[in-house]
């Protein structure tokens, strides 16, 4: 049986709704994500969680580095230090991806498993057809939330062999 693609399972409005709830609860009651695309700068940071199940892929949050720092301050509020440590920013960005990812997982067919948050350069989109992406502005700053599929292992092209030995 062919695995479903994400666009058969959820739409942008659902991802936006999940993100709105996360922002309102974690970032601030009056904080909104305006569903308007903006242009990310050259220095971005991403966080993501992996979902493995009938649909497998990652839920990726990407924003500019200074947006990540502002998000961290918003999450920590009065506990935000004057100088943010990189670990704090990674932690905050990872937790936002974790909450959005956990709620994306909840609307997908199960059983599924959720990985721990990771932070770094954005994972590559391997299948645009298996991707559901929301672009939004927070405090006028652009960010994206991408629910993007991971190709099944059996979907990989056959490995190359020479004289019967895997290359």
């Amino acid at each position: 049986m062919t695995a479903p693609v994400i666009t058969q399972l959820l739409d942008e409005a659902t991802v936006q709704e999940i993100a709105d709830q996360a922002w309102s609860a974690l970032v601030g009651e009056d904080e909104v994500l305006v569903p308007v695309p903006g242009e990310l700068g050259p220095d971005t940071r991403s966080s993501w969680v992996e979902i493995v199940g009938p649909w497998s892929g990652t839920v990726v949050l990407t924003c500019d580095r200074d947006t990540a720092e502002e998000l961290t301050r918003a999450l920590l509020r009065e506990h935000a230090p004057a100088e943010l440590e990189p670990e704090d920013v990674d932690d905050a960005l990872g937790e936002l991806a974790n909450v959005v990812g956990g709620n994306v997982k909840a609307v997908l067919p199960g059983p599924s498993f959720l990985g721990l948050p990771e932070v770094g350069p954005a994972p590559r989109v391997t299948s645009p057809a298996d991707t559901c992406r929301v672009d939004a502005l927070w405090r006028g700053r652009p960010l994206t939330i991408s629910v993007q599929g991971t190709p099944a292992p059996d979907a990989d092209p056959a490995p190359s062999y020479e004289n019967g030995v895997p290359l």
């Binding site: 974690l26 961290t72 999450l75 920590l76 509020r77 506990h79 704090d88 932690d91 905050a92 990872g94 937790e95 974790n98 721990l116 948050p117």
Partner: peptide
Amino acid sequence: DDSRVMRQIVIR
């Protein structure tokens, strides 16, 4: 919680 940020949010 393995997230310090989330521990702060829970406390708050």
